[in-house]
């Protein structure tokens, strides 16, 4: 191992670090301690990672009392700024804590102290580079390495002599570990039919955000409206878009011919990508855009995704009108709404 134990090596080469103290500038004559001492009693051997024999007691304006005095005043000025800002904080608090004013005052209070401390450290405090040994904190000597291995083996041997108990403990521990996870299962219910169903159902009315049922005539051509199943506002998968396509030619599979009311179609508003509401409707192109990641669905073509990360069409909700002429669902969605999951089926 190498130690730079040559006094004056390295550190002293720096200008200002000084090559040992000159007799003239002994500020500490006759003291009980030597400020250049590195914490080690003179008769003790030097430990590894402590610098030795290098003088880092010098500071920037040591030989310039005039500039030292100016530095001191400068630091004091910084702290006065901080003091005034602190008083300002109190004033601002009493007068309602206007945010910009508060911010500036808090900032000044911090910055005043901070800049003052930095200046003090830079101009008036000792702290030159020194060189020390790193010591051997990353590896012990071989003797100690043997010692720990032996210590451990001494206890391990009697245990390892009972492989049966040892293995059983492992197995039991594993099983108990799994059992100990059961409290976590109480955090939530088991995944249930809610994954596949919404609050829509046969004859459930479509209502607006404030609970008003709708007639087909409430929706003008090219109109679009977010509707909810009556009494099921809180169902986050239920929001549905009613769109009046007028006489724009739209394609819907033959099996769903009676799922619309004239030009009015209903599609899930929940994006099949990651579940955001796909609510931006372009009347010219009849496309729905999801603002989260720009998936684009073509309403004229069964809400097929035509751009973006959405992998599937928005599911269609079959609608009709009830005896009072209000728009109702014919049934729930016939496939799970929203993003995919393992058992979506």
């Amino acid at each position: 191992m190498t130690i730079l134990d040559d006094p004056g090596q390295g550190g002293s080469r720096e200008p200002g670090a000084g090559g040992g103290a000159e007799p003239g500038d002994q500020p500490t004559e006759g003291l009980a301690f030597d400020p250049r001492h590195f914490g080690i009693a003179p008769d003790e051997p030097w430990p590894d990672d402590v610098p030795r024999g290098q003088d880092d007691s010098h500071w920037r304006f040591e030989h310039d009392p005039g500039r030292a005095r100016i530095a001191e005043l400068r630091i004091a000025a910084c702290w006065i700024v901080s003091l005034l800002a602190s008083i300002g904080i109190a004033v601002v608090y009493v007068t309602g804590a206007q945010n910009q004013a508060s911010g500036i005052l808090w900032a000044l209070a911090f910055l005043g102290i901070g800049v003052g401390l930095i200046l003090w450290a830079r101009d008036l405090l000792p702290g030159h580079d020194v060189i020390a040994s790193r010591g051997r904190h990353d590896a012990s000597d071989e003797g100690n390495r043997w010692a720990v291995a032996e210590s451990f083996a001494r206890g391990l041997e009697p245990i390892a002599r009972r492989p049966f108990l040892f293995k059983l403990l492992g197995a039991v521990g594993g099983v108990f570990g799994i059992a100990a996870l059961f409290p976590l299962a109480s955090l939530g219910p088991r995944p249930d039919r809610n994954l596949y169903h919404t609050k829509w159902g046969r004859g459930v009315r479509a209502v607006t955000e404030d609970g008003r049922p709708l007639r087909p005539s409430d929706l003008p051509v090219n109109g679009i409206l977010t509707v909810f199943p009556e009494g099921g506002m809180e169902d986050a998968l239920a929001p549905t878009l009613l769109i009046n396509l007028g006489d724009a030619p739209f394609e819907i599979p033959p099996s769903r011919t009676n799922w619309n009311i004239g030009g009015i179609v209903a599609f899930s508003k929940i994006c099949t990508h990651a579940g955001c509401p796909a609510g931006l409707y372009n009347v010219q192109t009849h496309q729905l855009v999801c603002p989260c990641h720009q998936s684009t669905f073509d309403v004229l073509e069964d809400c097929k995704p035509v751009f973006g990360p959405a992998p599937r069409s928005l599911p269609q909700l079959p609608i009709t009108t009830d005896t009072e002429g209000y728009i109702v669902a014919r049934s729930d969605y016939t496939q799970p709404v929203g993003p995919g999951f393992w058992n979506r089926g």
Binding site: G10, P51, G127, V130, I131, A132, R134
Partner: peptide, 12 residues
């Protein structure tokens, strides 16, 4: 094997 810098106390 050596390290060069200033001591924590007081300046750093």
């Amino acid at each position: 094997t050596n390290i060069r810098g200033s001591r924590v106390w007081p300046q750093y």
